[in-house]
Simulated scan of single mutants.
Amino acid sequence: MASNLDSVLKKNANDLAKELEVERILKAFKLNPYDILDLPITATEAEIKKQYRKKSLLIHPDKFKHEKGLEAFDFLKKAEDQLSDPAKRKDIDMIMTHARTQVLKAILGSGYSTNIPDDDPRISNLTPPFDQQVRAKGREILVEDELARRRKTKLAYANEGAEKAKQEAEVAARKRKVEDQAKWEERREERISDWRNFSSNKKAKKSKKNSHVLG
């Protein structure tokens, strides 16, 4: 009886841990893969792979059913992919290093050094914690970069749209010119016929006028 109760309690505890992990990932800052994997920016490649494996096994959709479990798992995989790609990790690390520098400058003033370790007494007992401040500053920078990227993309689309509209207008203008030319050619015989009739009428009137004068 006690054994069965322990099993039920253990299962409930495991399910709760999985549910909390799904919720943590969904609430994590999506532009920072370190936040999603719950790792410091100093994590090694081996630590990243180990953490991903641990968390992916915990919330894998095949093993834990949650209405947003697949979404959380996708975020987790994307974060691991970003940090496993040297170029992408370099970009995110540059931003987080800049964030750390900004926080150090704000705390220590002009005498700060970027080589100060996280366990330095001057920053190890801060409120909020130093790592949390760095993550917050990194969030600000990442949001600014993302907004700038979106503005650039939007402008590019706008310029592309304007260029496309210009090209379409030029095509339409050429099409109208061709159509007008075709219509002009179609009425060539009609114009020639009209001119001949006009000339004939004019000659007839002149001949009639001359006959009156002579008579």
Score class of each variant (00 low, 15 high):
Tyr34Lys: 00
Asn4Gln: 09
Phe75Tyr: 11
Leu37Glu: 08
Gln82Pro: 02
Asp74Trp: 11
Lys30Pro: 09
Lys63Gly: 14
Leu26Arg: 02
Lys78Cys: 04
Asn12Leu: 11
Lys55Gly: 05
Leu31Gly: 08
Asn32Tyr: 00
Leu9Arg: 07
Ala28Gln: 00
Lys68Trp: 03
Val8Cys: 06
Glu19Asp: 05
His60Lys: 10
Asp38Phe: 00
Pro86Arg: 06
Phe75Glu: 13
Ala79Trp: 01
Leu16Phe: 11
Asn12Gln: 15
Ile59Lys: 12
Asn32Cys: 05
Leu20Val: 14
Ala17Glu: 08
Pro40Tyr: 01
Phe73Trp: 13
Arg24Asp: 02
Lys65Ser: 15
Thr44Trp: 05
Glu71Ala: 08
Phe75Gly: 06
Arg89Asp: 00
Arg24Lys: 12
Leu83Gln: 03
Ile48Glu: 08
Asp35Tyr: 02
Ile95Phe: 09
Arg89Met: 06
Glu80Pro: 07
Ser7Pro: 10
Lys18Pro: 05
Asp85Ile: 10
Leu31Trp: 00
Tyr52Ile: 07
Leu39Asn: 01
Thr44Val: 07
His98Lys: 14
Leu70Met: 12
Pro33Thr: 00
Lys78Leu: 11
Asp6Lys: 00
Leu5Trp: 15
Asp81Val: 03
Lys63Asn: 12
Pro40Ser: 02
Asp85Ser: 08
Ser84Arg: 07
Val8Trp: 14
Ile25Thr: 00
His98Pro: 09
Ala28Thr: 02
Glu23Val: 13
Leu9Asp: 15
Ile48Leu: 06
Met94His: 14
Lys68Ser: 14
Glu71Val: 02
Arg89Phe: 01
Ile59Asn: 13
Asp93Cys: 10
Leu37Asp: 04
Thr44Pro: 05
Ile36Met: 00
Asp38Leu: 04
Glu80Asp: 06
Leu39Ala: 05
Thr42Lys: 02
Ala17Leu: 03
Lys11Ile: 08
Gln51Ser: 10
Asn14Arg: 15
Arg53Pro: 04
Ala28Trp: 00
Pro61Tyr: 07
Thr97Gln: 15
Ala17His: 02
Asp85His: 05
Ala72Lys: 13
Lys88Val: 08
Arg24Thr: 03
Leu16Cys: 05
Lys68Glu: 11
Asp85Phe: 03
Thr42Val: 03
Glu23Tyr: 10
Arg53Asn: 05
His66Met: 08
Ala79Thr: 01
Ile59Arg: 13
Ser7Lys: 14
Ala79Met: 04
Gln82His: 04
Lys18Thr: 08
Arg53Trp: 04
Leu31Ile: 10
Phe73Ile: 07
Glu19Gln: 05
Lys49Ser: 14
Leu70His: 12
Lys30Arg: 11
Thr97Arg: 13
Leu20Gly: 11
Pro61Ile: 03
Ala17Tyr: 03
Ser84Met: 03
Pro33Asp: 01
Ile41Gly: 07
Met96Arg: 06
Asn14Ala: 06
Leu57Gln: 13
Ala17Phe: 04
Asp62Pro: 07
Ile92Leu: 06
Glu21Cys: 09
Leu5Met: 15
Phe75Ala: 12
